[in-house]
Amino acid sequence: MSRFRINPVKVTFYVIAAIFLILLPYYVSQYTVTTFIRIIYFGFLSLSMGFLIGQGGMISLTQTAFFGLSGYIIGIFGVERGLMFPWPDLMAIGAVAIMAFLFGMIAMGTHRIVFLMITLAFGQVCWAFAAQNTTILRGWSGIRGIRPFVIYGINFNEYQNFYWASLILFALGIFILWRISKSPFGLALNGIRENPRRMAAIGYPVYWIRVVAFLIAAVYAGLGGILAAYNTGIIMPTTIQLSRTIWVLLTVILGGASFFFGPIVGTFVAVWLDVLISGVTERYNLVLGVVFLIIVLFSPTGIIGIFDQMRNDKKFNSIINFFSPKKEKPNS
């Protein structure tokens, strides 16, 4: 299946999925739409982490800090200084990019588990600073009163409009990241994931490729942070606490870190799981932990990985064939 050949079934699927998502506010309740908005902004965050893990083999636990940073910038400049759209948003992205660049320069000297620990520690530094700085970031209270804006007569305070805007942004973001991961840059990144030394020997600037990948991922986390800040209306240190980082990591692994769409599927399932089980029991962290454990132990490739296996599974094929009348030869 070359990516240049048009696959009618696939196209039909994407069109239907798009229609389904675009028309969502018309046939589901408001809270379902709210949940989809959450899926989108956490989707950005987990896409950011998943891109680094899947394409670059780097488990970065700093991504939530970038997520929070853009929220703080919006809070400081949008609410307290009263700047109009799009300035706070652009500044947020800019700040995230600068910070990611600086931090990437420090952290990219390390690999794998050491990288994980350093990014974890850096995330905790950001959290500690946000919690303890009361002059600019307002400490534990955070910054309240962040509201979406009105441009060209479109009021983004309406949840439908906000949903559509997020959806467009998300689709665009996915598309761009998809192109990046299939570009020579993305392939070089994959090569570095497999064997950094060999890539360096061939002449690739390994260090800088990783820094740039880190920067791109950070911008995605930042975008998610902007949407989250507008959606919740408040930014507090709890936004970037360790448990959130771990939760995002869970979503990435749950969906399947090695697949491009893994983080999105993972976020989708995890957010709905959160919504459903928190209504039933207080022990949802326990449930999530067990799910996490099972996934890592029995299906390291995540949900998409399970589907991948199923596709090659005879029993499952026979179920699928049951629904389609004409028997075809397996084509791959």
Partner: peptide
Amino acid sequence: MTKKLYLIVA
């Protein structure tokens, strides 16, 4: 097989 899976989901 992939096609059918997509079809069913659609």
